[in-house]
Simulated assay, not measured.
Amino acid sequence: MPGQARLDYPFLRGGGAMGRAITAHDWASTPLGAISGWPSVLKISAGTMLQSAFPKCLCWGDDLTMIYNDAFVPILGRKHPCLGIPFLEVWKEAADSLAPITARALAGEATFIEDFEIHTTRSGTMESAYFTFCYSPVRDETGLVRGMLDTVMETTAKVKANSLAQLRNRELVHRSRNAYALVSALVNLTFRSGRPSEEIKSEIHKRIAALVRAQDLLMEAGATRGLLRLVAERALEPFEDGGARITITGPDIAIGREQVTALSLALHELATNSIKYGALGSLTGQVTLGWQVTGTRFRMDWTERGGPPVQIPATQGFGSRIIRYTLPEAFGGALSLDYAPEGLHLSLSTAADRLLADDPFAADAVLPELPR
């Protein structure tokens, strides 16, 4: 058949797979009629199109009957093969968007559009795709518009990459604001304690280090979320003394960015207080951090045992505010603190679907307004 095609239709030479498909197609059943009767302008246009390595589709007549080259096949996806079918029928799901542009081409006006979005079912399901294309009129020797040439390049990957880059830039700006707000609140509230300056300086350094660890984890985990276990291990690592006195248990659960930051700071404060007043300040003390999802509920518990008798703190400092207010607000849940004599017990509970519910751009700061 390829040899016969060269004899009968020399304008299709070098036309690749689509050149052979055009040769074999039953054009007599289409408005174009048998290929042997095609006018010279159609043959020349089709032959020129087939020689191009750029995606092209020649749409002929008022019905825009389709002829296309090999490079156009990936554009079509599952719509291929569709030789001899009207262009707007093939792209019927996007016809409302494309029809005005094709009408301008048939009226003699070329249109060039960059990154044009259409919604298409070419993959089998509805999807958004982006194209840079030119619909240009094709005229015969008398100047009459006989069809339209669609020269197109898909830009879906580029558009999505640009969108992702913009999202990451917004995330960077937002995170910078969060970090500034956190450090400002951290410094201001720590200084209110009235403690000696050297003690305040040490406390600020430790708290900023906890914040840095949380931000490092977010960068490693893809900028907007992290695994709860990694957050816990990273936050509590500085408090391990080699005696394995901190036990962490629970399934792998992803949590949102604001939850990562709040939990990291809260665990730092809990461990610091435990060293000063609780189980980690005793050689025999133990801390267990565990969490679980039961049905639609998430629960996390911090439990201390083996330390000195627990006393309810007389005042609330920055650490207490982080634990009592910031932590439950970030998780959209409820927190309870039990200062039992045998050891502190904290419990945080929330709906499981709240774990990734935080909007990356919903607020300008992680810390809420804390009570004075």
Rank of each mutant, 00 (worst) to 15 (best):
I323V: 15
I204C: 02
S52C: 10
A105N: 01
D353I: 05
P238Y: 04
M148I: 10
G124M: 04
R195D: 07
G290P: 00
S347P: 05
G290L: 09
S264I: 03
H119W: 10
E93L: 07
R168W: 12
P86L: 06
K276C: 02
G226K: 02
F54A: 11
W27L: 06
G307C: 08
P86I: 08
G47K: 01
A71K: 09
N188M: 06
P74Q: 06
Q51P: 03
G285D: 04
T296N: 14
G14K: 11
G33A: 07
P10H: 09
P308I: 04
G256C: 07
G3M: 13
G281Y: 02
D8L: 15
S274Y: 01
I312N: 06
A330F: 09
R175W: 09
R257A: 12
L186K: 03
I118V: 15
A103W: 00
L172D: 09
R168H: 14
H119E: 09
G333L: 07
Q215M: 13
R78W: 00
F72L: 07
L348Q: 03
I75K: 02
P100Q: 08
E109T: 10
K201G: 06
L346E: 00
T288A: 11
T247A: 11
L64P: 01
D96N: 13
V212T: 13
S45F: 00
T224W: 09
F239I: 09
M66F: 00
E329Y: 10
S274R: 05
M18D: 00
I275Q: 13
F11H: 12
L283A: 15
F239D: 04
D358W: 03
D358Q: 11
N162V: 12
E114R: 15
V138A: 01
H205G: 09
M1T: 11
I118M: 02
T23V: 07
T142S: 15
S193C: 07
W38L: 08
I101T: 07
G242Y: 05
A17M: 12
D8M: 14
S264W: 01
A221M: 12
P81N: 08
N273I: 01
G3S: 12
L58I: 14
L355V: 06
F133D: 00
A223C: 09
T48F: 01
L337R: 11
W27G: 03
H119F: 10
C82N: 07
R20T: 06
Y277E: 04
E240R: 10
Y130H: 13
W27R: 08
S264C: 12
L12G: 00
D364N: 14
E93D: 15
A95R: 11
R195C: 05
H268D: 13
S197H: 11
A71P: 05
S347N: 13
D338N: 15
D8G: 05
A223P: 01
D301I: 12
